[in-house]
Design a protein around this nucleic acid. Structure first.
Length: 464
RNA sequence: GGCGACGUACCCAAGUGGUUAAGGGAGAGGUCUGCAAAACCUUUAUUCGGCGGUUCGAAUCCGCCCGUCGCCUCCA
């Protein structure tokens, strides 16, 4: 598995610290509002990473944090007159619901910042002992001058930074513009915790250092997020973690690019700010959005358009239809030896599919391997040269690919008996050549979201 | 100002030195079908933003130019 490491800006082989096992930390949400589709792109990227690692035969321990105390959550809770934890729980539930809808596999751990304040305090104390901090007005700051490697991830040039006007207006006192808060002194009416440095709350960056090292050890394999995390968040995490342990923190840093809408940055004022619910209201198929995400490499900007979503939905339907068709052929149990060597074709397909993913998660190329395979399989079915074992092998390959794609239905849905009866009645009508009645039933079911397709083997239905 | 990314058909997009430039969507024509849908077949880039250069050979490497965008400040 080759991955592009932001640290060094090179694509390199993943060599797990512990053979066969990958430990990864994926920066999670700040639970202060409903996720937008840009956030979701990042979470789907991390899901594809996880699933690709698993497909490659590696085991994975994934940690995703929930930031449930920071300026935004405190402000939001105050605005809604809720206790901080009531406020954040609401959005945490929304977050997990979105992930489930998008068929994102759960991580092993979802630590919340407020459950790990003692760990953060301990880490700050270590940094203090090692001379990386200073305090003023009850706040604790990381002194960047004590960490010479600062900037190695983002390649930021500190000498170019100047003390600007913004800093003069800052409510806190710090020595240098780039120094950042490890601990913020309590303000009236805000949640706070007791600490050796006084009442206060943790800074944002320290939570990820403390929680990642708690669950994954001082050094682990992968750390991911979206590009905007490179600076300052991840740069600061490195400074804190390596400053505290004196060891390398993370081997490979992966960052996904942003999603834009109609060529522009998503923003509420432009009216192009979409949540999952907005997308599903327009196209009730989470798989379509997932597919759309996968059709662009994670390191390229993704331009979301409704036209693109519609196209993705069509493509997803093709894959699902082919899968359903294969299941039918496999179930029909024809043992007549087929001329089409599905088993060997399935093998070459999967090799190409896997190869693409192992090349820095090249999902567009992986998808490019799917369709020629489907076309050949469909042709073989049309020409009656695919036998049941072959259909089984092809279907199995498709399900293997779907371990990463995540767009096939978990199992065949069963229709309500009443609808089944309608389909039966229509088959009868067609036998009687009462096409008016047959078309009436088909239209009726279509209006209820059930699309019928007549084939040689009978009538098949799908949701439309 | 500093750092960086990108520009391949109507749209999305793979391809980063060498067969006819993947694949998907959309459009057009056709086969099949009671009709439809699905599926399949055919079709849509002598060309990869522009101009130079390196090379036997470049979409792929180098330079310049044009254009789009990001980060440097909370932001996935």
């Amino acid at each position: 598995m080759k991955l592009h490491n932001t640290l060094g800006r090179r694509t390199e082989d993943l060599v797990p610290i512990e053979a066969g096992h990958v430990r990864m930390y994926t920066c999670g949400p700040t639970v202060y509002n409903v996720a937008h589709i840009g956030n979701l792109r990042t979470f789907v990227f991390e899901d594809v990473l996880r699933r690709s690692l698993l497909l490659s035969g590696l085991s994975v321990t994934q940690v995703m944090n929930l930031t449930d105390v920071d300026d935004k959550t405190i402000r939001g809770a105050a605005a809604e007159g809720l206790a901080l934890n009531e406020f954040t729980e609401k959005y945490a539930r929304e977050f997990f619901r979105d992930l489930a809808i998008l068929n994102v596999q759960p991580a092993e751990h979802y630590p919340r910042a407020t459950d790990h304040v003692p760990e953060m305090i301990a880490l700050i104390e270590t940094l203090r002992e090692r001379g990386h901090t200073y305090e003023s007005d009850g706040s604790v700051w990381f002194r960047i001058a004590t960490f010479p490697e600062y900037g190695k991830l983002s390649r930021i040039d500190l000498t170019a930074m100047r003390r600007g006007d913004r800093v003069a207006d800052d409510e806190y006192e710090k020595e240098d513009v780039k120094d950042f808060a490890l601990w913020k002194s309590a303000k009236p009416g805000e949640p706070s915790w007791r600490s050796p440095f006084g009442e206060g709350r943790p800074g944002w960056h320290i939570e990820c250092s403390a929680m990642s090292m708690k669950f994954l050890g001082n050094r682990f394999d992968l750390h991911t997020g979206a590009v905007d995390n490179v600076f300052p968040h991840h740069e600061n995490e490195i400074a804190q973690s390596e400053g505290a342990t004196g060891e390398p923190f993370v081997d490979m840093w992966l960052h996904s690019e942003h999603l834009i809408v109609d060529g522009e940055k998503m923003s509420k004022s432009k009216g192009n700010f979409y949540t999952l619910a907005d997308v599903l209201a327009r196209r009730d198929d989470p798989g379509a959005l997932r597919y759309l995400f996968l059709s662009v490499p994670y390191r390229k900007k993704l331009n979301f358009t409704w036209e693109g979503l519609t196209g993705a939905a069509t493509a997803v339907d093709r894959i699902r239809s082919a899968s359903a068709r294969l299941a039918e052929v496999a179930a029909a149990g024809s043992s007549k030896p087929g001329a089409f060597d599905a088993a060997s074709r399935a093998k070459t397909f999967l090799a190409a599919f896997r190869g693409a993913l192992e090349d820095d998660l090249n999902t567009p190329e992986a998808l490019g391997a799917v369709f020629p395979f489907l076309r050949e399989v469909n042709s073989a079915i049309d020409e009656n040269t695919l036998d049941a074992p072959g259909a089984d092998a092809a279907g199995e390959a498709l399900r293997t690919a779907d371990q990463v794609l995540g767009i096939l239905p978990a199992e065949r849905e069963v229709l309500p008996a009443e609808i089944e009866a309608q389909i039966e009645a229509r088959t009868d009508a067609r036998r009687r050549r009462d096409f008016a009645e047959a078309d009436r039933i088909r239209r009726d079911l279509a209006s209820r979201g059930i699309v019928l397709e007549d084939g040689a083997a009978g009538t098949r239905w799908k949701k439309g």
